[in-house]
């Protein structure tokens, strides 16, 4: 896991290309496997490395594929990012240790889920569909709405071209 995270850290410097983002997603999927989240890793591999790469490439095809030179020097964003990061790291030291069985996350509702009331061995499925059914209904609706929004945005119009350039 440490190795793949190190590779991930190297990967972040090369964010110029979409393909690198795909590689990054795939590495993230392997990290997730190392963290025992097999369901999530499966989805991340299919979505991150597969579908979103295709989508980004498609969007790049529609737009110009080279980026303009940045107009500003990136010092201000860099400062903002580093200071926020430092603050967050400082805050992170107050969080429970990695893999601490006494951490609140393991003591609150997880034991109840683990009792397997619904007799489905894969607890992720059970929680997803049964315990948190409303949640998942909402998520499904969000996905549906996003799809509908994309249809609305990208559907071919009947040649109504609105000119935004200054009309005299």
């Amino acid at each position: 896991m440490a190795l793949s995270v190190l590779v991930l850290m190297r990967e972040r410097n090369l964010f110029a290309a979409v393909v690198l983002f795909g590689i990054y997603s795939f590495l993230m999927a392997t990290v997730l496997v190392a963290l025992d989240a097999v369901d999530v890793a499966m989805t991340e591999a299919a979505v991150g490395a597969g579908i979103s790469t295709v989508l980004l490439l498609g969007a790049l095809l529609l737009c110009k594929s080279e980026e303009a030179k940045p107009a500003h020097r990136p010092w201000l964003p860099l400062t903002v990012a580093i200071s926020t990061g430092a603050l967050l790291v400082y805050g992170a030291f107050g969080l429970p240790d990695f893999s601490d069985p006494q951490a609140p996350i393991h003591r609150h509702v997880a034991p109840r889920y683990m009792q397997n009331e619904v007799d489905v061995p894969n607890v992720v499925t059970a929680v997803l569909a049964s315990f948190r059914g409303y949640d998942t209904l909402g998520e499904t609706t969000v996905v549906f709405t996003a799809g509908a929004g994309i249809i609305a945005l990208l559907r071919r119009r009947k040649k109504v071209i609105v000119e935004h350039e200054g009309n005299p």
């Binding site: 989240a37 999530v40 979505v47 996350i105 683990m114 992720v124 929680v127 997803l128 949640d135 969000v142």
Partner: peptide
């Protein structure tokens, strides 16, 4: 399992 469920839906969304 709980974070897995949350993140699973979050990825697709």
């Amino acid at each position: 399992p709980l974070p897995h469920v949350l993140i699973l839906t979050a990825i697709v969304v």
